[in-house]
Simulated assay, not measured.
Amino acid sequence: MKFKIFASVFFIQFGLLVSFAKAQQMSTSDSLDTFLKSVMQKRHIPALQIAIVRGNKIIKNATFGTANLEYNIKANDKTIFSINSITKAFVGIAVMQLAEERKLKITDRLSLYLDSLPDSWKNITLQQVLTHTSGLPDVLDEEEQVMGHNDEQEAMKKVKSLPVEFKPGEKFSYNQTGYVLVGQIITKLSGMHFTRFIEEKQFKVAGMKLTRFGDSYDVIPNYAGAYTLTRQMGDGFVKNNTPGHAYMQFPVFFRTAAGIQSTATDMANWIIALKSGKLLKEQSSIDLLWTPAILANGKIGGFNRLTNGYALGWPTVTRDKHPAVGPVGGGRSALFVYLKDDLSIIVLTNLLQGNPDQFIDEVAGYYIPEMKEANGWIRKTSMQLKE
């Protein structure tokens, strides 16, 4: 009789704890939704999609706003967004997959795999091009357009005629040319085009059913499109408060640099597949994938004080507390994996100036209380970021 009473009390208490945990989770989710809607309004973001991973499970996925402004089409969980340069993170994994197959080493010189390189390019390594420390001239022109009118042979002929910008390893300088070359190497060593290699070895393995390569030219079902707040006027740009169309074309040979379209849920499943050993078998491969390059002066280099380092296709947020790797794309998409907190956050938008990397730490604060802006995290961060 006493056992039955004890068991009943135990299950009641356990049930109350479960109910409390669920209520707390719902409260966190509701508060986060309010925050995200506020950010969207302030930044004029038409549509936003978010997925959050913890314990290798998706604990939240939600979609807000309008995918298509012309026809007032509401965004949903199957709405597809361009992830732009987050594509480079897939390329980093592809290279490490070939490394695990013993088909290459990241310290190998480009000239080991590619012929007809300028003499000044021959000693540049795979690691240097993946980390943007190669010094290669950029295949994008002054107007941020791919050279050669989207023709690979013409583009490579033009960029090969340009001088290197600095001695390899001296500094960080974001560059697309190296990723075009890496695409050629993946195609050569894998025996299939690099887009197919990534589709087979990552999209399919991770169960990314809605993810594909494409750009503004392609007809993509449920595509959120691309919007911008800036328009060119003469030699300058004017910023507006109302989004207008943005057109982005990524020729096939350039799609190691940008070109993947995906959903936040698919991206979350990709992170789960990576962290659970489905994409890379060895933990040392992931460690290398996420280790920022050390420059000749002993420091690291990156985009800014937040994403202040760059690893193999993955920008890094190198800091003492809550370090992360944080691929960003087109000023519209961001993915942060918090390395010590078992937390990953994917935020996709259809506005080029949405810049979710600027508020993704605040999103993390809903799950890591110390990181809430109200607790002074933003001020702490500015002091903790390493140069």
Rank of each mutant, 00 (worst) to 15 (best):
F3L: 12
K4Q: 05
F6S: 09
S8W: 03
V9G: 02
L17T: 04
A21H: 11
T34E: 13
V39R: 14
V39Y: 06
M40F: 12
Q41F: 12
K42R: 12
I45Y: 03
V53D: 07
V53C: 08
N56Q: 14
K57D: 13
K60Y: 06
K60I: 09
T63A: 14
A67V: 01
N68Q: 12
N68L: 11
A75R: 01
D77A: 11
D77T: 13
K78S: 14
S85L: 09
K88A: 02
A89S: 15
A94L: 08
M96D: 05
Q97Y: 01
A99D: 06
D108S: 10
S116E: 12
P118V: 08
D119S: 12
N123S: 13
L130Y: 11
T131Q: 02
G135T: 11
G135W: 08
P137R: 06
D138L: 00
V139Y: 00
L140R: 11
E154C: 04
A155T: 13
M156A: 06
L162C: 05
L162Y: 04
P163G: 03
V164K: 10
E165Y: 04
F166M: 01
F166N: 02
K167P: 03
K171S: 05
Q176H: 11
V182N: 01
G183P: 09
K188D: 10
L189W: 10
R196D: 14
I198P: 05
K201M: 07
G207A: 00
M208E: 01
K209M: 10
S216D: 00
I220A: 07
N222W: 05
A224N: 08
G225R: 08
R231T: 11
Q232F: 01
Q232W: 01
D235L: 05
G244P: 06
Q249G: 10
P251H: 01
F254I: 01
A264Y: 05
I272H: 12
A273Y: 02
K278A: 04
K281P: 03
D287C: 03
T291G: 00
T291I: 02
I300Y: 00
F303R: 02
F303I: 07
N304D: 15
N304W: 10
T307G: 09
Y310C: 09
T318H: 13
D320M: 10
K321P: 02
K321V: 09
H322S: 09
H322K: 03
G331A: 09
A334N: 14
A334L: 07
K340S: 13
D341N: 15
L343Y: 04
V347C: 09
T349P: 06
G354I: 04
P356C: 09
D357Q: 14
D361V: 03
A364P: 01
P369N: 12
E373A: 14
E373P: 05
I378S: 13
R379C: 03
Q384G: 04
E387M: 10
E387H: 12
